[in-house]
Simulated assay, not measured.
Amino acid sequence: MSDQKKPPLPHDFLPPVPSFTVVSDDVTPEARLKDAQVHAGGNLSPHLRWEGFPSGTKSFAVTCFDPDAPTGSGFWHWVLFDIPADVTELPAGAASGDMKALPAGAVHVRNDYGTRDFGGAAPPAGDGPHRYVFTVYAVDQEKLGPDGEVSPAVVGFNLRFHSLARAQLIGVYEVPAEG
């Protein structure tokens, strides 16, 4: 992948909206993900904290997408929505294990691993660096509309029409070629 043109980011296809700030104790912008956020490592959702979103925000959604996955359609690692508007931080591991730290009412849909949680980075060996795009969406409704049975694409469709603003943080991970 490193000698090829990188696929576009998921937001490149969406109408522009204002941005706000998302930071993490676990993900450093454009730097290698920690082992805790790797599928074969800790497989823990990272800490995320956001601020500066529009005053009309009624809920949030959080996603993690790998546009560099060799699938032709990327790979969804995490899709969580209906996070109450008064929640502006998710602790590390909130979307992993027993999920006791998830806010009441938040809804997960299946990621591309087929599970309703955060699934860590797992690019194929030798495929080059993959970008993991963590996005927080400020949403104009308390409930986005879909339930936990829809696909990430349906959630993305709804977010396209109900996002007031977006914040993004990109981490990178690579597995060296074997042998």
Rank of each mutant, 00 (worst) to 15 (best):
K58D: 07
G72R: 09
W50D: 06
T71H: 08
H77L: 11
T57C: 02
S19I: 00
P67H: 08
V23R: 04
P67N: 07
L14R: 07
R32D: 14
P46R: 04
K34D: 13
D12G: 12
W76F: 06
G72C: 10
R32I: 12
S24D: 10
G72V: 07
V17S: 05
V17L: 03
H39V: 14
F20E: 05
S24L: 11
F20L: 02
F65W: 11
L33P: 05
G56V: 00
V17G: 09
T28I: 15
D35M: 13
S55D: 15
P29C: 10
E51T: 15
S73I: 10
N43A: 06
G52Y: 01
G74F: 01
S24R: 03
G56T: 04
T21F: 00
G72E: 06
A31D: 14
S55Q: 13
R32T: 15
K58R: 15
S59Q: 12
A36D: 13
D25W: 00
G42L: 10
D12L: 09
W76E: 06
D68L: 09
S73P: 00
T71C: 13
C64R: 03
T28H: 11
F60M: 10
V38L: 03
Q37N: 15
V23L: 03
H77Y: 03
T63P: 02
C64E: 02
P67A: 02
D12P: 02
R32A: 14
G56Q: 15
F53N: 04
D66A: 12
A31V: 11
P15Y: 02
F53V: 02
F53P: 01
